[in-house]
Nucleic acid binder design. Structure first.
Lengths: 149, 149
DNA sequence: CTGCGTGCAAATGGTTTGCACTACG
DNA sequence: CGTAGTGCAAACCATTTGCACGCAG
């Protein structure tokens, strides 16, 4: 996702294009590994000083509200964010706090098939997300560039 | 789960049996709909006054630590808790904050089958939880006794 | 008795809010 | 220009912590 695409998305939602919003988008994309608000603030402070903490939260809220980014659930109490909007699942490492995307089209249709025939009484499904809990192998951890603690 | 069972579980983990811990267990079970720490505190205050807020958090932490209860992930920033320890999934209502358990043995084996043949490179799966997002029907909401806002 | 568990109140820290100011369109 | 967006600092509030006391084993 490049700057032009981001600008287009903002306009499409009736949001004004501001350097702060562009910077926050950049941060989420560059940090890529489901950064916390704090990670984002830290990243931005280096490149674009004088962006207020409150602004970052307000922008993040606005972007989530307008479905331009998503909140990611964690066991811990801090929120994380991602700019990946396509259908995908998450791998949670129970040792580190690492979260990795998992895309699997075959799995999605496999699940669709299941719930096509089996409906849940009193509930209308909108979408299904898998929380795949487990451990990254040593090798996978070595390849990780994430700065999430 | 009755009081004796709870006592047994505490002892098995080397935790002392205290009225506070019993009360908190009772609260989680009675409130049943994935209560927040606040819900639990409110419940306890009525039946057993003079239980400190800090104690509730400490007990909840200890119980989670010892795998006697579980934290439930939410989009919101408040933690929720549950005493259901068997494998199950969650239905998230995107309108209310309601969370309902979803048990489906057939689905579990269906998923196991899938991941038996398809492994994820660099990652060892421990368990898989479905976040089923959607909406409860009007009827289902009327049947709800939950006190979660 | 001995130390785990509790009560209390203060501290923490992520997030929100109010308001005056700025700048996008 | 008018209003959405920002900066700032104070407020909020769920959760954590430190320490003296109490009670379970």
């Amino acid at each position: 996702m490049n700057a032009d695409q981001i600008r287009k998305n903002l306009v499409a939602k009736g949001l004004k294009i501001t350097p702060q919003r562009m910077a926050i988008f950049e941060a989420i994309i560059v940090l890529h590994n489901h950064p916390t608000a704090d990670n984002i603030i830290e990243y931005i402070r280096n490149k674009y000083p004088n962006v207020a903490t409150g602004t970052v939260y307000k922008v993040l809220d606005a972007l989530v509200e307008n479905e331009l980014i998503k909140k990611v659930k964690t066991d811990k109490d801090v929120m994380r964010y991602e700019a990946e909007l396509d259908e995908h699942h998450h791998l949670y490492c129970c040792e580190s706090n690492r979260i990795e995307d998992y895309r699997d089209e075959e799995l999605n249709t496999y699940l669709e098939n299941y719930f096509r025939t089996k409906s849940i009484p009193g509930f209308t499904i909108k979408d299904i997300k898998l929380q795949i809990n487990g451990r990254f192998t040593e090798e996978a951890n070595r390849k990780q560039f994430s700065n999430n603690k």
